[in-house]
């Protein structure tokens, strides 16, 4: 039970073991632990970030869809408006064209009436003249009584 030189031998062994552990065992194992901790925490952070990005992207997508819907409804409204306008415009144009045609037709009719009147007047004058010739025989010289003939013809008009 005595204390003896074994003590010194044991102390040397202990010192060697501690030195070896300090130099070759603790650092690599501890570093690998720390590195894994870092890796895991990095991974978790990345996963969280990814999740946040997904939420953000979803929000963005919703916004885009909403905008698109709004735009499309605007476009539809605009198109309807434009269609109405075109219909109105074409109605107007048609009416104007119709009016114009009516006016032109009326003018032509008037003109034709005038022409017919003129023709008739000429004919009547001629008839009257020939009738007068017949009544008066040769007494009436056409050149001599030109004035009277035209007066009559004017009265007929």
């Amino acid at each position: 039970m005595s204390i003896n030189a074994t003590l010194i031998g044991q102390m040397i062994t202990f010192a060697l073991l501690v030195w070896f552990t300090m130099k070759y065992i603790w650092p690599p194992l501890f570093d690998s632990l720390e590195e894994r901790k870092k890796k895991i925490s990095d991974g978790l952070a990345a996963a969280e970030k990814g999740q946040e990005e997904i939420i953000l992207a979803e929000k963005k997508a919703k916004g885009v869809i909403k905008e698109a819907k709004q735009q499309s409804s605007e476009i539809v409204t605009l198109a309807q408006k434009r269609a109405n306008e075109i219909v109105e415009e074409s109605k107007d144009t048609a009416k104007k064209e119709g009016d114009r045609l009516i006016i032109a037709a009326k003018a032509q009719i008037e003109q034709e009436i005038q022409q017919a009147k003129e023709g008739l007047r000429q004919e009547v004058a001629d008839l009257a003249l020939s009738a007068a010739e017949q009544i008066l025989g040769a007494e009436i010289d056409k050149a001599k009584h030109q004035d009277i003939v035209s007066k009559v013809s004017n009265q007929l008009g």
Binding site: M1, I3, T6, L7, I8, G9, Q10, M11, F14, V18
Partner: peptide
Amino acid sequence: VPSTDLNATFAMSIS
């Protein structure tokens, strides 16, 4: 059993 030897336990505690 080295820990039943006082030399072993004292070597460690003295260190």
